[in-house]
Write a protein that binds this DNA or RNA. Structure first.
Lengths: 129, 129
DNA sequence: TTTGACCTTCACATTAGTGGCAACGTTGAC
DNA sequence: GTCAACGTTGCCACTAATGTGAAGGTCAAA
């Protein structure tokens, strides 16, 4: 598919898709006329990139770990560069920290919302049917 | 405590603490000589801010939700502005998305690390004692 | 009075995009 | 064919968010 269709399928503007290519995150092939052409599996990859960027992972890191996020790895694993494992462990731990942090604070927010709701229902108790 | 001590306790440079104040995230009182002075509970608040920023929450949002993250709320809840509940729900849902996303990808990374380890041990099987 | 922590302020850096232009490709109507 | 409309290309510059550096001055303890 071409860039417009991918943009439409992912909700990510074409402009941003070109930017991600510039950052080494997605590498489409080219048609004879120079147009970018994307395989279907890149729809998921683009969404993955968006989610990771939104979660505060820098693009530099994303480009390192992206190949490790696609499921059937098998081949890639052999002759992994020496630093890779260490990088992955570091980033995984960082992600775990983020998860813990977000979870804790999300739960605080949830409790606060409940408190608002209870305060509201107390103020004007259920009365009608 | 003054800014240097807070910086030391939180690991956040004094420069950044001033920046966070500029962004409305932390509002220390001032001594007669103009020095900032921080209460003890701000140590936790600073760490919270760091975690949230690292997780991709914009400071503008953080400043809105910070008051709702401290545990004994009770008083604050009453006469909450009308938009607040909606904002909180939106942000909570966004945080949940991030959590799911990070969890999914972290697990992929973990599996990949395991695959590396297994590939390594297969390549050079346990042989010596 | 010198030293180190602190003050404000202005400028600069980095990351993650966005906007707009001019030129080229593609498609459908005439 | 050719014209218009729209998608795509590269490119350059610009924005917004999150910090960081450094100059030049103040405070207070040794």
């Amino acid at each position: 598919m071409r860039i417009g269709e991918l943009a439409q399928k992912t909700g990510v503007p074409a402009r941003m898709l070109r930017y991600y290519e510039e950052q080494g995150l997605i590498s489409p092939r080219r048609l004879d006329n120079g147009y970018r052409t994307y395989d279907d599996y890149l729809v998921d990859r683009v969404k993955k990139v968006r989610g990771l960027v939104d979660s505060g992972i820098p693009t530099r890191i994303i480009s390192s770990i992206l190949p490790c996020l696609d499921q059937p790895q098998t081949i890639v694993v052999r002759n992994a560069e020496p630093g890779l494992r260490e990088l992955l462990v570091t980033e995984r731990d960082r992600m775990s920290e983020k998860i813990d942090f977000l979870t804790h604070n999300r739960d605080s927010i949830t409790r606060y919302i409940q408190a608002i709701d209870e305060a509201g229902s107390q103020e004007r108790p259920l009365r009608a049917g």
